[in-house]
Write a protein that binds this DNA or RNA. Sequence first.
DNA 1: GATTGGCACTCGATGATCCCGAGTGCCAGA
DNA 2: TCTGGCACTCGGGATCATCGAGTGCCAATC
Lengths: 340, 340
Amino acid sequence: MLDDRKLEVLCAIVEDYVRTHEPVGSKTLVERHHLGVSSATVRNDMAALEEDGLIAQPHTSAGRIPTDKGYRLFVDNLTGIKPLTRAEKRAIATFLQGAVDLDDVIHRSVRLLAQLTQQVAIVQYPTLSRSTVRHVEVVALTPTRLLLVLITSAGRVEQRVVELPTPLDDDVISDLRARLNVAAVGQRLVDAAHRVSALPETFRPPDVAVIAQLVAVFTEAVADERTDEKVAIGGTANLMRFGDEFDRSIKPLLEALEEHVVLLKLLGEATSPSTVTVRIGHEVPHEQLGAASIVATGYGPGDRTLASLAVVGPTRMDYPGSMAAVYAVARYVSQILADA
Amino acid sequence: MLDDRKLEVLCAIVEDYVRTHEPVGSKTLVERHHLGVSSATVRNDMAALEEDGLIAQPHTSAGRIPTDKGYRLFVDNLTGIKPLTRAEKRAIATFLQGAVDLDDVIHRSVRLLAQLTQQVAIVQYPTLSRSTVRHVEVVALTPTRLLLVLITSAGRVEQRVVELPTPLDDDVISDLRARLNVAAVGQRLVDAAHRVSALPETFRPPDVAVIAQLVAVFTEAVADERTDEKVAIGGTANLMRFGDEFDRSIKPLLEALEEHVVLLKLLGEATSPSTVTVRIGHEVPHEQLGAASIVATGYGPGDRTLASLAVVGPTRMDYPGSMAAVYAVARYVSQILADA
DNA sequence: GATTGGCACTCGATGATCCCGAGTGCCAGA
DNA sequence: TCTGGCACTCGGGATCATCGAGTGCCAATC
């Protein structure tokens, strides 16, 4: 059923349509791509491809455009990830080099990815739940007010202000700080929360209640889903390029982009490192993004996956290019995290 | 020259045009607003207003639209800031209530402001240069690798990893930490940097060079403009509502929004708290934002101004509403910062 | 059997034309 | 100073004809 040549025709259609964004007809197709056959043959193939639901025509007597299913086949047929040019690699390296901060790394990555792909980029912060504790700090702001600071291995910093019913002595605080660190440092956050929750009992009676409260804040912060996952978005300006035509599908998309919660679900599933996940059109598990595709992958130091990053765009996007960019940026970010 | 009624006509034109977004003619004007005069009279007034450059007609035989100068006069003639409804106030309060973090406060504020005004919102993080040091922390990641954490009074956290040529003893680090805090806590950041730079000399010779390097990182981080100023943006989805018509002016605007540097200049000037600054069209000091207006104000605990927040939109925006929202959100954020 | 050239047909896009009506300026009269 | 009336303008929408890229199908050919 699916000839080698039919596949070739499909790919040609996808490429042309992605580039020109106009339905592509049999004649222009044989002109641009040197398939060694005539337009009539291509027409026959097109009819077959349409039969299989891989392409469609918006109106009778117009050219064909790929369907979601067509894009899917096209993507599945890509052999590996297209390597970036040397210039692109250098661009990535220099762009990410000066990063000074985890925040800085994330934001630079987002902008870089947006610029490389000319689409909307999303980078998730390293999830707390998959990180380990690097350091815990307790700072007395006032006698009854403590600042609890948690630094993860990936460099994320979480802080909470805790109001105490009664003041704590400075040496109790020092003691607490030391024990918190002993209990938590190096542990995954869930384990740390568990071990920390046993701490209050080891203090003298009058302080137990106060410290229990403080510890509760700690475990709560760790367990909270909303703080667990956090994303940065960039390149929304690139959505403008599809102005008129995507008018109705672009607005909900942008709105969805601001509803970070939605994104996290999308990213949450694409977590394998060194594998790039592509979701096309209706495959995206969100009804409002029907005309959008997502190219995502995981990143993290070594082979562990801490979080995901992705590119979102219209179904008619440059899949090979986006996949290459996503993959490359993920690798660089992973390396930076491994170094830091 | 500028009759009371002419002013009234101008305001009516502005209001109508902002609402309908269509050039408004004399007839429809007298229908909607019950000015006690006929359309012919309004026509005469309109001619005068056009003479003064306050309104213009896009084409002959079309209605009038306000010019930048017209909007300016309209805004200058507003008496005070329109108070928000009780429901809006409650919405603000509940929206910002659960904030747990400075980051959280900023992001919630941006989204809130965007939602209230249906425009693009920008909130600047409390500038480092105007903050004081709350706490300095030094964490040894490895023997030759320190993490320097700086927490400001407003809750901003800056961190830097420092590579050391030679390791430092734990007690030297403790000593350093203590002295850093003594020298810096409570100081404005510039002063802190100054005082901290005198520290290395007080250590024993072998450590002086190492500590000098560490201190250099500290002062550098404080002095760096890029880390000094930081902004969050939200509501870009709202730009879509002006799709076709603002097509050419909307794209550069969105791009400018991602070039944070530009924004900081815009915000940098609107720093008086309790005063709302409005920049209309060409008044905006950036050539690419010719068709945009900015409504900005400062915020900060008490009467000190730590940073700015603003709303950006097309010149034909709801100035009274935006001003009210900006003002209200700034007040709430200020209060939260004062509490924290 | 696959491929090709030819042909009639479809239908969206483009351009020309016309018409309408909201809006204007101006002027004479109240 | 305001108002009613009137002639004039001109952009937007509707209508219609044309054009051409594209299709499906069929008979002829390799």
